[in-house]
């Protein structure tokens, strides 16, 4: 009788381990190349700062206002407040509007044509008009960010509720539910996945638009900070700003994903 050999789980783990080491090595090489390119003078320090300098600048920017007039924390707070305010007010209006548009034919045929005209215009293209209308201050930026988050949240909720299984709708009707009840208990839950896709897209859209708006018209904020970094020819400041922007965006997306897991647990496959 043949003896049984059970595949050792350890073998799989050691293979994964070697991949992790490969990743670590790749990152190390990346930083060494970066360091080498700058220190050897192949790339001028006026164009790119070495990794260590970026790190020092990052740390010092927590307390240092120079050279762009505010600490990293102050820029961060300005940007985050603006982005979140615009984002939240946009999705609070946008998602329900999209759901209603998808459910009620009348609402759909009235709102959709306007929407189809506005939709392909990137939110950034609204910046000049917004500045002309509201001046260079906060309202202009808030308006653009609001718009950038509004459009994806409407579209995805709309598409989501349109995909509701007709069987579920009929089932609900045969149990005597009114149209409104069916909307709330069948349409909305089954659209939830798409609504969340919309919320994610809205968030990244709002964050990107914020950067654009701050590049063009701001006196504080992460976008302003990197723009000042350019004016002052300080690549370290620009890179610190870019990394902060990237990290914040990733962190917000992560939190939203967590939130989604809590709200729609049945979606995990």
């Amino acid at each position: 009788m043949a003896t049984r050999i059970v595949a050792a789980p350890g073998k799989i783990r050691s293979k994964n381990n070697s991949l992790v080491w490969l990743s670590a090595a790749s990152l190390v090489v990346f930083f060494i190349i970066w360091y080498g390119l700058v220190e050897s003078g192949i790339i001028s320090k006026a164009l790119l700062s070495p990794p260590a300098e970026v790190l020092t600048t990052f740390i010092s920017k927590f307390s240092n206002r120079a050279p762009d007039g505010a600490t990293l924390g102050a820029h961060f707070k300005t940007s985050l407040t603006l982005a979140l305010t615009g984002y939240i007010t946009a999705v609070v209006v946008g998602a329900p509007l999209g759901l209603l548009m998808g459910w009620y034919k009348k609402v759909d045929s009235i709102v959709k044509p306007i929407f189809e005209v506005i939709r392909p215009i990137p939110p950034i293209a609204w910046i000049p008009l917004a500045i002309l209308w509201f001046g260079i201050g906060l309202p202009a930026k808030a308006f653009i960010i609001w718009l950038s988050a509004f459009v994806p949240s409407v579209i995805n909720s709309y598409a989501g509720i349109k995909l509701t299984e007709p069987v579920l709708i009929n089932m609900s009707r045969t149990f005597g539910a009114t149209n409104w009840e069916t909307f709330l208990r069948v349409g909305v839950p089954s659209a939830l996945a798409m609504v969340f896709t919309g919320l994610r897209l809205s968030l990244s859209s709002a964050w990107m638009t914020l950067v654009a708006a701050e590049l063009l018209a701001a006196t504080e904020g992460l976008g302003y900070m990197i723009q000042m970094g350019r004016t002052l020819a300080r690549p370290d400041v620009i890179i610190v700003g870019m990394l902060t922007i990237g990290l914040t965006g990733a962190a917000m997306a992560f939190i939203l994903e967590r939130f989604e897991g809590k709200l729609a647990p049945w979606r995990r496959s």
Partner: peptide, 20 residues
């Protein structure tokens, strides 16, 4: 001839699928 096969499960223990 005398085929044996098991799969590692999620929780660490193995599921025996083919036995001799």
């Amino acid at each position: 001839q005398h085929l044996y096969k098991s799969f590692p499960g999620m929780d660490g223990n193995v599921t025996e699928v083919l036995k001799d």
